[in-house]
Amino acid sequence: MTGIEKLKAFAKSPHHAWLGLITLGAGLATVSTIGAIAGIAAYALGWIYLPDSRLFKNWLAARKQGDEGAKLRDFLYQRRQIYDALRSPVRARYDTLATEIAQLQEAFSRDHRLNPEILRQRSERLSSLAWTYLRLLHTGEMLDHLIETEDPADLEHKIATMEKEVGAIEPGSKAGLVESMQSRLQSLKARLEKRRSAEESRELTASEQERIAELVKLFRADHLASRDAGALSHEIDGAAVQLDRTNDWLRGLEFDTSPSDIPQELTAAAPLKVGK
């Protein structure tokens, strides 16, 4: 927290309210110029010393912990909803990957060659992999549902039939009917376009799911085979860049309804397995 941020937090804290009451309030209560000046001076000194006091720092830490706890509970709730909406075989795929990542994190923690900062970075990025994988599974389910419920051949047949019907109507006659049929045509064409777009997105979603699963296996194999404990960090960093591109793609995909922009610190704080 910067100095300005600390002062802003102090201004909104109960410590500031008590400072003003005790100094300015007491100074004004004396009904004297000297008392008022003394109160203002004490108030100013409070602004100088109290933001750096242990009492205020402890209050800030407790508030931060409470805010982070609330954010984590909200994230766990949203993640649980996404997980529960998956079909059983798809949930099993997430459970398998979460187990593999947890085992890899445990292997890293037992490696005496890795310092705490490298361990933290690897843990955060692997947890982000799990969260992105769950989002991809969820998006794949949404796309599958659309693909299963929309028959492109049927839509194309309906579009062709309706275009013939509209073309057969005498120009200038039945204006209301023509307007209604053209509106229906636009709706059918939009559905067909969404169906085609869903097929393309489904292929990419499936490929990204496989890529993440293969990355985890590659990290495990490289960790076991590598003599350089830090070498794997470069591969994980490279995967993190690719992961950012995947998240950007998901963010712009209308079929993805999962929360975006979840920070790594939050996904790292959540247990990998979704609790029952």
Rank of each mutant, 00 (worst) to 15 (best):
T2I: 04
E5N: 12
K6M: 04
K6A: 03
K12I: 02
P14E: 06
H15D: 05
H16T: 10
H16K: 11
L19G: 12
G20I: 12
I22N: 02
L24E: 00
G27P: 07
L28S: 08
T30C: 11
V31D: 14
S32Y: 08
G35A: 02
I37Q: 06
I40Q: 03
A41V: 03
A42W: 00
I48A: 01
D52V: 09
D52K: 14
R54T: 02
L55I: 09
F56C: 03
N58F: 05
K64H: 02
Q65V: 00
D67W: 15
G69I: 03
A70H: 04
L72V: 10
Q78K: 11
I82R: 13
Y83C: 07
L86F: 07
R87F: 04
V90K: 10
R91W: 02
A92Q: 07
Y94C: 09
Y94T: 10
A98F: 06
E106P: 00
R110N: 10
R122A: 06
S127C: 15
S128I: 09
L129W: 06
R135S: 14
L137H: 13
G140L: 01
M142N: 14
M142D: 11
D144F: 02
L146H: 10
T149A: 08
T149H: 05
E150I: 06
E150G: 00
D151Y: 03
E156W: 00
E156C: 00
H157Q: 13
A160Q: 13
M162V: 01
K164L: 15
A168G: 15
A168H: 15
I169L: 14
G172A: 13
S173A: 07
L177Q: 11
L177K: 14
M181T: 05
M181N: 02
R184I: 05
Q186A: 11
R191S: 12
E199S: 11
E200T: 14
T205A: 13
E214K: 05
E214N: 09
V216W: 13
F219P: 02
R220A: 11
R227I: 06
D228Y: 08
G230Q: 03
A231E: 12
S233R: 15
S233Y: 13
H234R: 15
G238Y: 01
Q242Y: 05
R245N: 11
T246Q: 05
E254G: 01
F255D: 13
D256Q: 03
D256N: 11
T267F: 01
A269K: 08
P271Q: 10
L272K: 09
K273N: 06
